[in-house]
């Protein structure tokens, strides 16, 4: 089949995990539909080119590197114009992006420039005759829609975590290209990247999420959850909107309908009532643990394991027990 395009997202000069997922998704789609090359695009400040080799390892045959000192931060108009130019000229059947904050900004711009429709937040991706077929959670994950996209190229954003990066060992040819428009001409200008705690796992990627609600009473008690997360070693800390509204935790930690959607192997909810808007963001977690003083709290209805009681007493004991378990 025709070649497949993948956009490899970077932040502060580093490839993000979703970049490897996008390249893997493109490789798997190509392999499942009669072959063809995978062409990846990576954009950044000078120095980003060496990352191309890593994309080869995940299945890219060609990596186009666009380096420019003005592109140290994501510049929406420049990247969109550059991606649209490459995709338009390359005759691709499918172009894969990530359904990350950056990918959700970028892909619709590119699609509209090319005059094509697109699939968002796909959890699966296949070619079926003259259509691209995907699944896509709608209505805050309460319904799964199977969607059909005709027309070429077909743009798709892949939900983070839906595809596990898999090595395919290609030695990618590296080509360099110029941005399609002068970065100085962009109207939307990136001013600042505010890095969070980079040592901490991202909520969307952490295998374990430990979340707190208003039941934790005061912001200082989130230290108990941070300790529990540290005991797991592969955990991130989340929160409810009641908590982010109070300013106890930043809005970016909010899980739910209007916050982040997470689907970890283990979700621990402490002092969380289980409002539907919160459940919308975590109900697809594999195992759910709830700790709540109120036996009637709705969170217990979807929890695999519930403990009734004071989270402030229970969490520290759990932390010690997890530490012990990890030692063995």
């Amino acid at each position: 089949m025709a070649n497949t395009f993948a956009y490899a997202e970077t932040r502060a000069g580093e490839l993000r995990r979703v970049a490897l997922e996008a390249v893997t998704a493109a490789r798997q789609l190509a392999d499942a539909s009669g072959g063809g090359e995978v062409h990846a695009l990576i954009v950044g400040a000078p120095g980003v080119a060496p990352k191309a080799e890593q994309l080869g390892r995940y299945g890219a045959d060609v990596v186009t590197v666009v380096e420019d000192s003005a592109l140290d931060k994501y510049s929406p108009e420049v990247v969109a114009a550059t991606a649209a130019q490459l995709i338009g000229a390359g005759g691709y059947r499918v172009a894969v992006f990530s359904a990350s904050a950056q990918g959700k900004d970028l892909a619709p711009r590119v699609a509209a420039k090319l005059g094509v429709s697109m699939i968002s937040d796909a959890t699966s991706l296949q070619l079926n005759g003259d259509a691209v077929v995907s699944q896509h959670p709608v209505n805050t994950g309460k319904v799964i829609a199977k969607v059909n996209l005709t027309g070429s190229p077909a743009l798709v954003t892949i939900r983070p975590g839906a595809v596990a990066p898999a090595e395919a060992n290609r030695a990618a040819r590296v080509e360099s290209a110029k941005p399609a428009i002068d970065p100085a001409s962009a109207r939307v200008v990136p001013k600042e990247l505010i890095q969070g705690n980079t040592a901490q796992l991202d909520l969307g990627e952490a295998p374990v999420v430990v979340s707190g609600g208003r039941g934790l009473k005061v912001p200082e008690n989130f230290k108990l959850l941070e300790d529990l997360a540290a005991a797991f070693g592969n955990a991130a800390v989340g929160a409810t909107r009641a908590v982010t509204d109070e300013g106890w935790r930043p809005h970016s930690d909010q899980i739910g309908q209007t916050g982040r959607l997470v689907s970890p192997e283990l979700y621990i909810a402490a002092g969380i009532s289980g409002a539907i808007q919160h459940l919308a963001g975590m109900r697809t977690s594999r195992t759910i643990v709830a700790i709540n003083r109120d036996r009637e709290a709705p969170i217990f209805k979807i929890a695999d394991y519930g403990i009734v009681g004071d989270a402030l007493e229970i969490v520290p004991v759990l932390t010690e027990a997890v530490k012990e378990a990890k030692k063995e």
């Binding site: 429709s117 829609a145 059909n148 005709t150 109900r283 929890a303 403990i307 009681g309 004991v317």
Partner: peptide
């Protein structure tokens, strides 16, 4: 060009198991 061909409900969760009370349940 983009249409929905099928809708499904995700598998229902079978939660609701309370395993104990207080720190003793840890």
């Amino acid at each position: 060009h983009l249409t929905v061909t099928q809708m499904e409900l995700p598998p229902e969760r079978t939660g609701g198991r309370i395993i104990g009370e207080g720190p003793d349940a840890v």
